[in-house]
Amino acid sequence: MNVLRLPLIALLAGVLGLAGCSVHQPASLYQLDSGTPGQPKQAEGMAVVLGPVTVADYLQRETLLQRQEDGSLSAATDGRWAGSLSADIDQLLVRQLAWRLDSQRVVLAPAIASFSPDVQVLLTITRLDSGKDQPAVLDAQWRLIDRRGHVRDNRMVHLEKLHEGSTADQVKAQGELLQQLSEQLAVALKPLANQPPLVEPRKPESKPAPKKSADRPKIPMASPIRTDLEVFRF
C-alpha cells in the first residue's frame, strides 16, 4: 500500500511544482520607445534647459498600470517598467528636442552655473497611461521662460493614440505620444532662438549743451565828473 502511494505523491508534487513555475514566471520589462532621433550637428545651437519635469505621483513607480473602462487603474500582471519611468521620460524628451532643434546644447535641469540658456522649459505631465481596451493618453502642460525670465508660452496639451491591445503595443503608443509632445514643443521653442543679447551695448552718453546765460540789461558804469570851477571864499 505504501509502495502505491509514493508514485502518486511524487506525481502530485511534480504537478504542483510545474504550476508554481508557471505562476512565478518573471514579468517582462519595458522601456519607452524614443524613436530614431538623429544626432544633432550644431555644437553652438540653441541653449535649452528642460525641467524641472514634474510627473504625476501615480506614475512614480515601476508598476505598469492599466486603465480600465470605468477610469480606474490596475497593475499589469505581465509586465512592469524597467527602472524609473520619470527618468525614461526625461531622456526621451532630451534626445528628441536636441534632434529637432539640431542643437547639442539641450540639457536637463539643473544645469551647471556657467550654462546660460536661451529658454527654460517647465513641463508637467499629469497623465500617461493606457489599457487593453483604452487608448494611450498623454496630458501635459508647459511654460517657456526666456533668458530675461519672461513667460513666452504657456500651453496645455492632450494627445491620444490607439493601439492593438497588447502590453508591448501600449508601451509603444505611450512613447509615440511623448515624441509628438516633443515635436510640438520644438515648434514652440524655435522662434525663441534669436533673442536679443541679455546685456545690450551701452550707448555713449551725450554731453548736455552748455546753458546760455540769460541776457541782462547792461547798466552803464558811473564815471567821475571833473569840473574846472574854482570855489572862492570871502
Rank of each mutant, 00 (worst) to 15 (best):
L4A: 14
R5T: 07
I9T: 12
I9H: 06
A10M: 10
L11P: 03
L12E: 02
G14N: 05
V15M: 07
V15H: 13
V15R: 04
G17S: 08
A19Q: 09
V23I: 14
H24C: 10
P26C: 05
A27M: 06
S28V: 13
Q31E: 09
D33F: 14
G35W: 05
P37R: 12
A43T: 14
A43R: 15
A43G: 09
M46A: 11
M46G: 10
V48D: 06
V49L: 02
G51Q: 08
G51I: 12
P52I: 12
T54N: 12
Q60V: 01
E62S: 05
T63E: 12
L64S: 00
L64V: 06
L65G: 00
R67V: 13
Q68R: 12
D70M: 02
S72I: 09
S74N: 13
T77Y: 07
R80Q: 15
R80F: 14
A82K: 02
A87T: 08
R95K: 15
Q96C: 03
L97M: 13
L97Q: 06
W99C: 03
R100L: 03
D102F: 12
D102E: 15
D102T: 06
D102Y: 10
R105L: 13
V107L: 13
V107T: 11
A109L: 06
A111N: 07
A113K: 13
A113D: 15
F115C: 01
F115E: 08
S116N: 10
P117N: 05
P117F: 04
P117M: 06
D118A: 07
Q120T: 15
L122N: 08
L123E: 06
T124I: 01
I125F: 02
I125Y: 07
R127A: 11
G131F: 01
G131N: 02
K132G: 00
K132F: 02
P135Y: 10
A136E: 07
A136Q: 04
A136Y: 05
L138S: 11
Q141A: 13
R143D: 03
L144Q: 13
L144K: 02
R147C: 06
H150C: 00
D153L: 03
D153C: 00
D153S: 12
N154I: 03
R155A: 04
M156K: 14
V157L: 07
H158P: 05
L159Q: 15
E160N: 04
L162N: 03
E164W: 00
E164K: 01
S166P: 06
T167Y: 01
T167D: 01
Q170L: 01
V171G: 01
K172Q: 12
K172P: 00
Q174A: 09
G175N: 04
G175F: 01
E176C: 03
E176N: 08
Q179C: 11
Q179R: 14
Q180F: 07
Q180P: 05
Q184H: 14
L185R: 01
A186S: 15
V187Y: 15
V187I: 15
V187T: 15
L189H: 10
P191Y: 09
L192H: 11
N194L: 11
P197C: 06
P197T: 09
R202Q: 14
R202A: 07
P204W: 05
P204S: 04
K207A: 12
A209L: 13
A209S: 09
K212D: 12
S213Q: 15
P217Y: 10
P217Q: 09
I219K: 14
I219Y: 09
M221Q: 06
A222I: 07
S223G: 01
P224G: 07
I225R: 14
R226I: 08
E230Y: 04
R233W: 06
